[in-house]
């Protein structure tokens, strides 16, 4: 019963941190009213025992750090937050750290060794035994950044083969355009993908500004496509592939495909994988010596 012990370790540490007032809040997972796992914000020691860890902990909690940004008090009373991260989530932390969105000393990172999250996690009664696609191709078992590591580190030999992209890449361009148009037509512009994304932290999204020369006011397919392509591009070399956007999409658009494709190209062109280190994206830096574009 490894998971039982992992959960116990998380609870123990959360208790210590809250008791010693090292942190003000622990962001973790708990069981929802219908049995599904949901994010939890623990402020009281009494509530710590509701924290859980299992294969249904799909949420990327780093998203919630965005909401506490700027709420830290003066240095006299540093209000730190503890956060539970999976390996994928920890890479989002690195992205935010590189972009100076959070301060390292403001967060206490409880990293959990992850063996994959199951399909349908986060929704009551939809959980299955099958691993999510992103987890099948993921070789990260250990968070890239943590203060406390929970679990036994392993390093399986898995390489991302981008198998989900092959079908689309093989299509003729016109068909591919039609495929995406059909998908974007279904979009209802609820912006859930943007809200859940740890990388989308602009206080006013470019695509929702009053000055909507960027995206027209019509909710037409062109505006939807411009939004999705623009968002995907904003996340290029920053998206860590947690696929939360796809999970929360009420219309079940295959949003992760475009992000995954961009990650693939960034890897090919710049040999860069978002979040591996707290470093700036290659799109924001100068060309290296001898590097030449356009090819």
């Amino acid at each position: 019963m490894t998971e039982f012990t992992l959960q116990d370790q998380i609870r123990d540490r959360a208790k210590q941190l809250l008791a010693s007032e090292q942190v003000k809040c622990v962001i973790g997972y708990e069981h929802g009213s219908r049995g599904q796992v949901r994010p939890a914000f623990i402020h009281q020691i009494n509530d710590v025992d509701s924290l859980v860890w299992n294969q249904g902990c799909t949420h990327n909690l780093v998203t919630y750090l965005r909401d506490i940004k700027g709420t830290f008090g003066s240095d006299e009373h540093l209000q730190r937050v503890a956060i539970i991260v999976k390996p994928c989530d920890s890479r989002a932390l690195n992205v935010l750290l590189a972009e100076k969105q959070i301060e390292r000393e403001h967060i206490y990172v409880i990293g959990v060794v992850c063996t994959g999250i199951v399909e349908g996690a986060g929704y009551a009664g939809q959980s299955s035994d099958k691993l999510q696609t992103r987890c099948v191709r993921c070789s990260d078992r250990v968070p890239v950044i943590y203060d406390l590591l929970v679990g036994e580190p392993t390093h399986p030999e898995i390489t991302d083969d981008y198998v989900d992209l092959t079908e689309l890449e093989a299509m003729p361009p016109a068909e591919r355009a039609a495929f995406w148009l059909k998908q974007y037509e279904r979009c209802i512009l609820c912006y859930a993908c943007r809200q859940v994304c740890p990388g989308c932290y602009c206080s006013t999204c470019m695509f929702e500004r009053d000055d909507s020369l960027w995206v027209g006011i019509a909710a037409g397919v062109k505006e939807k496509e411009a939004f999705h392509l623009g968002r995907a591009y904003h996340l290029a070399a920053r998206c860590i592939g947690c696929d939360e956007c796809e999970r929360v999409c009420p219309m079940e658009l295959p949003l992760s495909l475009l992000n995954h494709k961009l990650a693939k190209e960034v890897q090919r062109l710049f040999h860069y994988c978002a979040g591996d280190e707290p470093s700036q994206s290659p799109l924001a830096t100068m060309l290296a010596e001898g590097e030449e574009f356009p090819a």
Binding site: P173, A174, R176, L229, Y233, L258, L262, E265, L269, P294
Partner: peptide, 13 residues
């Protein structure tokens, strides 16, 4: 723009 080209190609432009 070298990356943008890849993205455009992927959506059929």
């Amino acid at each position: 723009f070298v990356l943008l080209k890849e993205m455009l190609a992927f959506v059929g432009v």
